[in-house]
Amino acid sequence: QPIEQNPSGSCSVDVSAVWWDIAGFKEQCIITACEYVVSLWKPLGAWQWEKTYSWHFTEVPVLQIVPVPDACSLVCVALGNLEISEIRALLCSSDGKSEKQVLLSSGNIKAALGLSKRRLVSSSGTLCDQQIDLMALAEDGGSKEKQSLMPPEETVLTFAEVQGMQEALLGSTIMNNIVIWNLKTGQLLKKMHIGDSFHAAVCHRAYSEMGLLFVVLSHPCAQETEPLGSPVFQLIVINPKTALSMGVLLYCLPQGQAGRQVFVSSLLNIRFLEGDVKDHFAAAVLTSGTIAVWDLLLGHCAALLPPISDQNWSFVKWSGTDSHLLAGQKDGNIFIYRY
């Protein structure tokens, strides 16, 4: 169901799902982001939604929503032009009557990820003064504790939690390495090279099983080197003890879609990659305007959503609160699919 027509003419940039306390009830809400406004929509039932809160930004536009898993009535946003220059926490006053925003960090921020236990990790600065910060978020949205993680000697582009291991964090770097930190001690545990075919890969999800680390990666740009066409996502396995790795599965487009999968992205701005992974499903927006969904266990493309009403899809997210797929168009229309 379309939940918003955007009369301002500014582009819709992101969507996310969040739990929010509204009049004493914890509701599963939708957060939408346009360039200068972030809105919270509460469910009214029967697929009707009502805009409940809006946070306005006047100087710097919104680049992406940074959801904080486990957090209720709190969401973060990254603001900036080409690069992230600010991360802000968005919340409400204690009486629920007005919106609040708190500046969490500013600077030349490369990547940010919300983690379990109300934490946020970000990488900022350039190569020689790169800083990796882990923040615990207080009830009022501010930073309660700040801890530095040991930076690798190369730029960190993306982060991913290791499922089931709250103290482990992965990062992908510009030099095709996966790094792993111990969040409790801040130690950089290992740097693992994953081969040159993974240039500027985005690290989406990871889990550890039988002493091995399984990592789902995606490629910010298509590469026509594979005989089956360019893989959009890839599952690799790494032995963290030896740093040896190998590919397990490639997730390619079905026949007939090949050659049209170059993402809305560039090597310099890989966070604009429009792909998302949750549990064993991955979704991505293709430049054709179609959304493709893969079953990561079965290894095949499970669904294709063609553009609707002549409007291409421009972003896609899994709802972290259930198994819904949130698909957005530039004009502000958000569609929710039950998968």
Binding site: V237, K241, S245
Partner: peptide, 23 residues
């Protein structure tokens, strides 16, 4: 065979790497 290609595996890799890495 695949596991052998990746070298010796440890179920406690996280704890072991944490004790080996510089503080």
């Amino acid at each position: 065979r695949r596991k052998r290609n990746l070298g010796p595996i440890s179920l406690n890799w996280f704890e072991e790497l944490s004790s080996e890495a510089p503080p």
